[in-house]
Design a protein around this nucleic acid. Structure first.
Lengths: 337, 337
DNA sequence: TTGTACGCGTTATCAC
DNA sequence: GTGATAACGCGTACAA
């Protein structure tokens, strides 16, 4: 910066004025400065800038499992929006239980002021105890999941009505004996989806409490296991004819189990999912599911975080779930006989 | 830090000595310092530290498409290794052509010294012109792709022998009329795989030049299109009986096209892929493919970058491709008739 | 062994 | 309008 000032025959403060748009500078000098900047291909040192301003435009993105395409899409949304705002996105994998030292990396990072705030993509089963510490260090925005009791701002989609829609569709195809594979009971989304399913079935005249339910952890293997338990429970002539799964990955696992038992999908058992991950439509049969605006959710979470950063004691805006969309494909067919 | 010094009744330098392990400090004072640090829950300001040391332990991860599970796995590997080293991983999506301002974000970032180096996951079709600038600003490590002529260190897998292995498997099942869906011709991996396929077919007595080839861009849609072109070329009785695809996503696209033409997979046409993305084994039929050690590749790339950072003028180590594994599943069956 | 003082590159506060 | 100059929080020669 000194060099630039020298080349332009001005003082460093003038250079700063020009670059930050703060302070009045004569047209002539401004041009000289800009020219010098270009000549020397000068770029401000962000470390120094952050040092002075006590903050760096950097958002932490805590994501449990990038391999889940749904999460990856949210991450992309966050990245896209943030990079437009010239902010860095730092990837944080949460601690693997047991592996961690006494203090979670994420907390250490936020504390060391390398992160201005973070976006928390919970998705995994439980709420890390470190979340409370996190919130004391900077703004935290939740995506995809609500944490009742924490009062944290969140961007989520309308899980409940999505669940209602997909269950209603199953009903409308004539299924009466259904089973539900739910998500982790600790998660808000699991409850919402379950509630949605039950509402739909209830209004179709099916007693919600009579519907067999198994809970998984949103991963494929757990779908396999849950399907096994569910099918074992309903032997004989009143075998389940449709499996309603709380996400796509578990639906895939369920299908795998059904096939391993020589049950055909959808002829013998219909299956639906939730999320609409990219490969859902490439499965055989193409998976009926609920599309969540993953990309958009990521972007909005970032947007929310930035406004929180600019206006620290802003009250979190009214929470309004984003709309979802039922994707009717061919993994649901009328039950036979 | 001043506070800590005061609490421990020592000078700031002593605190610094203790924290960085540099300089000799008496046992007694050391303990006092550590206690004060804990009491005040002090954490060094990384901005200041970076300012002083002219570097921050931060690696940029440039990834074209997180939605591709294969890339996501590599990213996870990078994250895992880096966080063990207390380094941040910054996610960079490359510029979308046309969207960008004159200067790519990535370059700006590296130049502004917020990144100490970066890991380049090319995968996409072309080499950004900004790569050269990048290399001047800090160490760059390539993953999954080699860029001949740049002399950049890289971590890749043995694409060629993997390709040879799948192709050999297709041959061994009795296929003689095969078609190849290759990757972007600008990419090293595409050439390697193509070479591998041809070697295998040649040693099976099939003239490599006679094998129909279409090129895609590693994305699903392009697989669909390529399959269409390939099948159109081989009408009638010598219709292709097996499609060898340079990655899983294109294989999925190809299968989709075949089905749209009422061709059954694998009864009418066998299909193989490359990468072994997680859902490959959940497709119907389960996709025969080549597993690349994605996670490991990410970790090794990070490892390489760190050693380059510590030892700037180290010569890039001998390049040795990581082994891959043929995953035989049921998308390949003997041709009928 | 410990403390003092300076510099890292910026920005903000003041005089001019 | 412009230019000195003092922070920002840390590392580290150097003096004590």
């Amino acid at each position: 910066m000194k060099d630039v000032a020298r080349h332009a025959s001005v003082s460093v403060s003038t250079v700063s004025y020009v670059l930050n748009g703060t302070g009045p500078v004569s047209q002539e000098r401004r041009e000289r400065v800009l020219e010098a900047v270009k000549m020397l291909s000068y770029t401000p040192n962000e470390a120094a800038r952050g040092l002075r301003q006590r903050s760096a435009p950097t958002v932490g993105l805590i994501v449990p499992d990038l391999t889940n395409p749904y999460f990856a899409m949210i991450a992309e949304g966050v990245e896209r929006y943030s990079s437009e705002r010239d902010a860095l996105v730092v990837l944080c994998a949460p601690e693997v239980a047991g592996t961690s030292s006494s203090e979670p990396t994420t907390t250490r990072l936020l504390r060391s002021q390398r992160l201005s705030g973070c976006i928390f993509l919970s998705g995994a089963s439980a709420v890390p105890r470190s979340l409370m510490e996190l919130t004391e260090l900077g703004p935290v925005v939740l995506v995809d999941e609500l944490l009742p009791g924490f009062g944290l701002p969140a961007v989520v989609s309308d899980n409940r009505s999505g669940a209602r829609a997909v269950a209603a569709h199953v009903l409308s195809m004539g299924h009466r004996r259904v089973g539900i594979i739910g998500g982790p009971s600790t998660l808000w989304s699991s409850h919402q989806r379950l509630a949605g399913y039950r509402e739909a079935f209830a209004s179709g005249g099916i007693e919600p409490d009579s519907i067999p339910l198994e809970v998984g952890d949103y991963r494929q293997e757990s779908g396999f296991d849950a399907a096994r338990l569910l099918m074992a429970r309903s032997a004989g002539s009143d075998r389940i004819t449709a499996l309603v799964c709380a996400n796509d990955l578990m639906a895939v696992g369920a299908i795998e189990y059904l096939r391993s038992q020589s049950l055909r999908v959808p002829e013998d058992v219909s299956v639906v999912g939730f999320d609409d991950v990219p490969f859902a439509r490439s499965l055989t049969p193409r998976l009926t599911t609920v599309r969540q605006p993953a990309h958009d959710m990521g972007a909005r979470a970032a947007e929310l975080l930035f406004s929180l950063l600019e206006n620290p004691d802003m009250s979190p805006p009214d929470y309004e779930p984003l709309p979802v969309e039922l994707m009717v494909r061919d993994s649901v067919q009328p039950p036979r006989a």
